[in-house]
């Protein structure tokens, strides 16, 4: 008996080796592509597809992003700046079909947001100095802001007809900053789907749309607006875009006060009361516009969310307390050591 077992013992190293090999996690078939466009880093992750099939699609998506970057740039020479110049001269400007569709979609979201998502805000953004690669250092003169508000241009001042555009307000200056990323992400997802790719994340500087899953659901961390690291996480289901607007993305400080780039078109100053606002919605373009509009809405965000058809919202206030819509509460998981103070706010 003992001798036999002793003989068997020689098998042990073999057994252990087999076990070790079996436990070795196989390299997940994840393909990643990374490039810079639209003033941010674009990250595309694909799951369960081989590189040969993915490469041509990824190359096409990268070209799309670069093209949109050049077409829509809000301050560098682009189709959009040319359009703005023509509009401000009061002339009729030709609009390519692609851009016209985007402007129509923006106009629809501008209406549903009650004007809080306002692509006609370019003049005000320039006034604040957010049209530039470097951050502004000082607050604009109150008179200058008042002058803009007096003539407050709106998306409704833009007439779009038969491939041409015309503005009835000389202050109207289009800025697709709160929208372009979403549109570009949607287009990338369309391209992936057309190529038969069903599991992917298209991530434009943290704002993203995820379809399908990997061997588990895609797991998205949401940055803490006031501390390094992750505040909460969400596992995506099916087809979802997660967009966050935060006062930490682009800001400067003057006389101890923080001035960020999300400007309230109603008063001309950075929107107060919110540190970051996250929405989940199927379409990235809608999520992008809604994240901005709900951020600007401040305490009244549930009404704006209902108007825009957004069900999942998380708002982090500057004091670190969190407000959730009921549908968001079902999905979010806090990742901080101490769970923040959470208030549920139902949508009207």
């Amino acid at each position: 008996m003992t001798a036999e077992i002793r003989k068997r013992l020689y098998l042990l190293p073999v057994l252990i080796a087999v076990l070790l090999a079996a436990c070795q996690p196989a390299e997940p078939p994840l393909i990643e592509r990374r490039f810079i466009a639209l003033g941010t880093i674009i990250d595309i992750s694909l799951y369960g597809i081989d590189a040969e099939r993915a490469d041509p699609v990824l190359a096409a998506i990268e070209r799309d992003f670069h093209r949109l970057h050049h077409d829509w740039h809000a301050w560098e020479e682009s189709r959009l700046t040319t359009l703005n110049t023509t509009l401000q001269q009061g002339k009729r400007a030709p609009v390519p079909a692609g851009l016209a569709a985007v402007l129509e979609q923006a106009r629809g979201l501008n209406r549903s947001s009650g004007g809080l998502f306002e692509p006609a805000i370019g003049g005000l953004m320039a006034l604040w100095g957010f049209h530039g690669n470097d951050l502004p250092g000082k607050v604009p003169e109150a008179d200058a802001i008042a002058a803009w508000l007096a003539e407050r241009p709106r998306m409704n001042d833009l007439e779009l007809e038969g491939g041409h555009a015309r503005s009835t307000n000389p202050r109207l200056q289009l800025d697709l900053g709160a929208f372009a990323k979403g549109v570009a992400v949607d287009r990338a997802i369309d391209r992936l789907r057309d190529a038969g790719i069903g599991n992917a994340i298209v991530n434009a500087g943290g704002d993203l749309r995820a379809i399908g899953a990997r061997e588990r659901p895609w797991r998205i961390g949401i940055r803490h607006p006031r501390a390094p690291g992750v505040l909460a996480s969400i596992e995506t289901q099916g087809d979802e875009s997660i967009f966050t607007s935060g006062d930490y993305e682009r800001y400067f400080e003057a006389e101890g006060k923080r001035y960020h780039h999300i400007i309230d078109p109603r008063n001309g100053y950075p929107a107060r009361g919110t540190a970051s606002l996250t929405v989940i919605h199927s379409e990235a373009a809608v999520a992008d516009a809604a994240a901005t509009a709900l951020f600007v809405a401040g305490d009244a965000w549930p009404q704006t969310a209902a108007d825009m058809g957004i069900e999942r919202v998380m708002r982090v206030r500057p004091d670190g307390t969190v407000e959730l819509s009921p549908a968001m509460a079902e999905r979010i998981r806090f990742e901080t050591d101490i769970e923040p103070e959470v208030t549920l706010r139902g949508l009207p």
Binding site: G39, T40, I41, S45, N133, I201, R219, I220, G221
Partner: peptide, 24 residues
């Protein structure tokens, strides 16, 4: 973390990659 003008970016690769992406 990225310096876009200088085209340099830093990407933390997670221990077990807890997140596939971070919403910034």
């Amino acid at each position: 973390a990225a310096c876009l003008p200088n085209r340099v970016s830093l990407h933390v690769q997670g221990r077990d990659r807890r997140y596939d992406a971070i919403n910034l």
